[in-house]
Amino acid sequence: MTHQLSRAGIRAEVAELLYLAPDEVPPGENLFALGLDSVGLIGLVERWRAAGARVSFVELAERPTLAEWWELLAGG
């Protein structure tokens, strides 16, 4: 099911959460510095897990950049 989580899709979801346009979220930028908070992250984790991704809150919070999430979510 992980095929549902495309890079563009992940980026779009994160960007929406942060009230930014997708291209305003550079892959290497710390997402917490961009305004992500733990509540928002929990929402993302829940949705991605529901979509079949095997990631945890901790894993995503430890490596809070889009580039690393792409890897984590693709690896799951």
Binding site: N30, F32, V58, A61, E62, P64
Partner: peptide, 11 residues
């Protein structure tokens, strides 16, 4: 505040 984002304390 949780104070753990980006920290080893996450685990």
């Amino acid at each position: 505040v949780m104070g753990r984002t980006g920290s080893v304390a996450l685990r």
